[in-house]
Nucleic acid binder design. Structure first.
Length: 715
DNA sequence: CTGGACAAGCTTTTT
DNA sequence: GCTTGTCCAG
């Protein structure tokens, strides 16, 4: 069985899959079958080496990848995949922490997980307490500081120097104390507390070291310091660490991903072996060439030479749009013609740098009636009603959760306003008890005016009742009951859209129950805190997928659109300022290499940013692509230099008149590529005059439009 | 205590 | 341009 499908592997892949043991780094180029290698490796370990599934730990980057891996394994080695430990670093740490909760100092086993929004609220509360202005210490940057420290696994006091730092440190300490009081962990805590547990508790470490005979890590290029520490600790005993990654696809530097993890693997793990996978099975030659050329402009990287036996395929297409609306309608029109050619919509994806770019494109798709689905972003889990409902559930599960309590205590409005809450906060402080206990205490001892008192009593009785109910019923029943009891359903009466979102959460509950592992509230909460939108993304429904370039990692599509190829957007202005342009280039590389057959690029000449129109320069990355691999067109050339009226787009119009016949003057054709000794390669936007006296307007990526005498141009 | 009106600040990227 | 937070009248 196993040997039968191993035949389909190439020699390097085979070597990796049947690696005898010890540390192994598989340097796998884009589309070289990375995830497949891990799956086959696990199947090999179980089937041939007779390793028990329970003794294997596999770490993936998303829960979706984990689920898919489990499914594939279920097919390769039926009945054995269940006991494998597969998941993201976060979900695996959570699982360990829940099991070992007794050993956790300062937290109870029913702890909840706070998302970044909750974190910000905690920080704001702490700062108010410390009398620190949000002007001087932006809560967002404080959060970034806290996260950064946790990702690096360092004591935040280590880096502190000036007064500012000392104040931020004070906030940090207050934050940590508040989190303990609320019995809540943030994402960083999941990793840090696990590592701390292992460093401080020999027995616990021993237990997991013994259990995990084999540890496999996917997307190793995006692991950070704390994740490295975890893997290093756990693999010390058996030393069977199998990691797969591609330094060219490292795009999470801002989250503490440390490229040294992959570059220094051989030093960190003695006797480590390295295997390179350089055959790309995914893309056409043209796409692979373009991606190779692009990434070769980066300096810090392992040398790899990605090749493919696939066909050459069509050229990449670049469209210079007038503005972001023109860009959006160009995409929609193009997709309509692609579906006309026989492509399914779910074979197509649109990638962008920042989430807000999706809005304009969505509007245009709605107008043109092209079905789409936005994956990730400020999506489902950010919506107020979803947060409200989750806050109810979290609070029912953990009555120390102050952030959730504050969120729900007056939603829907039940007459418990600011002054009552202030009163309760006061009592909680003076009596040194959690906020909810203070509420119960206040009711018992008549510490509030009669009106508020009876309203607080009703609220606390309701919560007590719901907690009781939660213990005796499953998630679906609890949700129904809760919506009824809290009056939330009534609140939604008039609002169609919000009701639909609430309906969605019922679906999620059903999906969770389908996993069959549990129907308990705490398990549901754990699950939902760690599933992201990408995880529930279903590629089978016939809709175009919209997502950020970051979310696109690990996916592939026959047709890929990458939009907003502009200076300050891709590369993003902040990265340019920080000198991180190479990571931005890798991001573009990740986008390109998702594509199997076709790539469509675009940028807008002007774009609305913060409400005002800004002139945009085409991205410098455009000139990193091989000239012959790209077909260029601009909104001007597409319309013969005349004013465009709505509805005339290169894509929509193409079948009547191909782009080749765009306005031509002498040897210079609008839309054609040319180059200049100082500005490099550019695209011709318009031409005046003819012969060597012609004055040509050329758009140079990174420089903008320049008027040049024809004699200075070449190509 | 509630809800509406207005101002301010905002956009990288995510487990 | 949009969303979030703040202020004030009812």
């Amino acid at each position: 069985m196993s040997s039968a499908h191993k035949n389909k592997l190439n020699p390097s892949q085979k070597e990796a899959v049947s690696h005898p043991g010890g540390p192994l780094l598989v340097l796998a180029g884009a589309g070289s079958g990375k995830t497949r290698i891990i799956t086959e490796r696990i199947a090999h370990l179980i089937d041939i080496e007779r390793v028990r599934p329970f003794n294997i730990l596999a770490v993936t980057f998303t829960n979706k990848a984990a689920g898919e891996m489990r499914e594939r394994l279920e097919r390769l080695i039926p009945g054995q995949a269940r006991n494998l430990w597969i998941g993201t670093f976060h979900s695996i740490c959570l699982r360990i922490l829940k099991r070992e909760a007794d050993m956790l100092e300062g937290f109870g086993k029913d702890f909840v997980i706070y998302d970044p929004g909750d974190q910000i609220k905690v920080i704001k509360n702490c700062m108010a307490e410390l009398n620190l202005s949000e002007k001087v210490f932006a809560p967002r940057s404080v959060r970034a500081f806290i996260d950064g420290a946790k990702n690096k696994g360092i004591d935040p006091a280590d880096g502190a120097a000036g007064l500012y730092d000392r104040k931020v440190l004070e906030i940090y300490e207050a934050y940590e104390a508040a989190m303990r009081k609320s019995n809540a962990l943030d994402f960083g805590d999941l990793l840090n507390l696990t590592v701390r547990l292992f460093s401080e508790n020999r027995e616990a470490l021993e237990k997991y070291q013994t259990q995990f005979h084999h540890i496999l890590v996917d997307e190793y290029q995006d692991t950070n310091r704390i994740q490295y520490m975890l893997v290093e600790l756990l693999s010390r005993k058996h030393k069977n660490l199998f990691v797969v990654g591609d330094d060219n696809q490292s795009i999470y530097g801002w989250r503490g991903a440390d490229i040294r993890n992959i570059l220094d693997f051989e030093n960190d793990f003695p006797q480590a072996k390295i295997i390179k996978l350089e055959e790309n099975y995914r893309s056409t030659k043209t796409i692979r060439d373009a991606a190779n050329r692009l990434i070769s402009k980066n300096t810090r990287r392992h040398e790899k030479n990605l090749w493919t036996g696939n066909v050459r395929g069509e050229r990449l297409y670049f469209y210079l749009a007038r503005d972001e609306k023109d860009e959006a309608s160009g995409i929609a029109a193009r997709i309509r013609s692609l579906t006309g050619e026989g492509y399914q919509r779910n074979q197509i994806a649109v990638f962008y740098r920042t989430n807000n770019q999706s809005r304009v494109i969505e509007e245009e798709f709605l107008r043109q009636g092209v079905p789409y689905k936005v994956v990730g972003g400020t999506g489902f889990y950010e919506r107020a009603e979803i947060k409200d409902i989750l806050a109810y559930m979290k609070f029912i599960a953990n009555r120390l959760d102050e952030i959730s309590l504050r969120r729900i205590i007056n939603v829907p409005p039940r007459g418990i306003g600011k002054s009552t809450i202030d009163n309760l906060t006061q009592i909680s402080k003076s009596e040194n008890m959690p906020l909810f206990d203070a509420a119960i205490h206040a009711v018992k001892k008549n510490l509030l005016p009669p009106g508020p008192l009876s309203r607080v009593r009703r609220f606390s009785n309701m919560i007590t009742g719901l907690s009781q109910y939660a213990r005796e019923h499953d998630i679906g029943e609890l949700l129904d009951h809760m919506l009824q009891e809290t009056g939330y359903l009534e609140l939604l009466e008039k609002e169609e859209e919000r009701r639909e979102n609430v309906g969605e959460i019922l679906n999620l509950a059903a999906e969770f129950e389908k996993t069959g592992d549990s129907n308990r509230l705490p398990d549901f909460l754990d699950w939902i805190s760690l599933v992201s939108d990408v995880d529930t993304f279903d590629e089978k429904t016939d809709r175009v997928a919209f997502m950020t370039l970051h979310s696109a990692k690990g996916l592939e599509f026959p047709v890929v659109f990458i939009v907003g190829l502009e200076e300050d957007l891709l590369p993003h202005i902040n990265s340019i300022k920080n000198g991180d342009v190479e990571e931005e280039r890798r991001l573009f590389y990740v986008g390109l290499t998702r594509a199997r057959k076709r790539v469509f690029l675009s940028s807008a000449s002007t774009r609305r940013i913060f409400g005002s129109e800004q002139s945009q320069m085409p991205s410098r990355f455009l000139s990193d692509l091989p000239e012959e691999a790209v077909e260029y067109e601009s909104f001007e050339s597409a319309n013969g230099g005349t004013q465009r009226t709505s509805g005339t787009h290169p894509a929509g119009r193409r079948r009547h008149r191909p782009a080749r016949s765009a306005a031509t003057v002498g040897k210079y054709r609008v839309g054609q590529k040319t180059s200049h000794p100082k500005f490099g390669q550019g695209i011709i936007k318009s031409v005046e005059g003819s012969g060597d006296d012609a004055r040509v307007s050329v758009l140079f990526p990174g420089y903008g439009v320049k008027k040049i005498m024809a004699g200075y141009l070449s190509g």
